[in-house]
């Protein structure tokens, strides 16, 4: 099922890979409660390239954490590939994150003590891939992001753009069904931003589902569909005309 879907509203499309149904999230710290998600409905199909767009504090990262099975809803349902994730235990959730999701964070989140290829192979380590194959696949992923000559460099020896490309390589090395990126260009200059975004374009062309979170319209416009979020609710969901 690598056929990319251009129109999420197509009637005869297979069931959505991601489905949020009346999803709500209330943060509780002490006696203070804060409703970060106010019952949102969202369906994303395999092969889509969706930007989640909104101002700071609107609940974008909360959505990403839910989609990435890093956090749980306080209301409603999150169905991933047709399964209600609430039914999964911790070990199954770990396996879902490992097999189906590739993360790209704003702050890169690389392990500074490990060289690039060791950072990239981490998902494979937890995916029980044999050692020799891991190194091969990690090298290939780093070549894909244009860092074939930086396998042994540690994060500290690379620029921000290069580090984020290492993170992208790590997200794609396990060939997950979807890539979740939370403000991946937030810490990058314009050249690096362009590099990373064109990587996402390529990946999407290869059929990978991409959810890109950003507060910059320019970045959002690289996606084929833009979901506008404000104050924990979806205010607009449109096919990107640009």
């Amino acid at each position: 099922m690598v056929e990319p879907l251009t129109n999420p509203l197509e009637a005869d499309a297979p069931g959505p890979v991601i489905e949020l149904i009346d999803a709500g999230k209330t943060y509780t710290s002490g006696t203070i409660e804060f409703e970060a998600l106010k019952g949102i409905n969202l369906a994303i199909h395999e092969g889509e390239y969706v930007a989640i767009m909104g101002p700071s504090g609107s609940g974008k990262s909360t959505i990403m954490n839910i989609l990435g099975c890093l956090d749980t809803l306080t209301r409603g349902q999150y169905r991933l590939g047709g399964t209600d994730v609430e039914e999964l235990d911790e070990i199954e959730l770990a396996s879902v994150r490992n097999q189906q999701i590739g993360f790209v964070f704003q702050g890169f989140n690389l392990l500074s003590s490990l060289p690039a290829w060791r950072n990239v192979e981490l998902p494979l380590v937890y995916g029980h891939v044999p050692r020799e194959e891991r190194k091969k696949r990690a090298s290939r992923a780093l070549e894909r992001v244009g860092l074939g000559d930086r396998l042994d460099n540690k994060p500290g020896e690379m620029s921000g753009g290069q580090q984020q490309r290492v993170a992208v390589a790590r997200a794609l090395v396990g060939e997950p069904t979807m890539i979740l990126a939370d403000e991946p260009t937030g810490n990058l200059d314009s050249v690096s931003t362009r590099d990373v975004l064109s990587l996402f374009d390529e990946l999407n062309n290869l059929g990978r589902t991409i959810v890109l979170i950003t507060h910059e319209l320019e970045v959002a416009q690289r996606a084929r569909r833009i979901v506008w979020v404000k104050d924990g609710a979806i205010v607009r969901d449109e096919v990107n005309a640009a």
């Binding site: 890093l70 911790e90 770990a94 396996s95 994150r97 490992n98 097999q99 993360f103 998902p123 937890y126």
Partner: peptide, 11 residues
């Protein structure tokens, strides 16, 4: 990070 990348608690 390791958990996000798929490390189960036992690992």
């Amino acid at each position: 990070l390791r958990k996000a990348l798929g490390a189960p608690p036992w690992a």
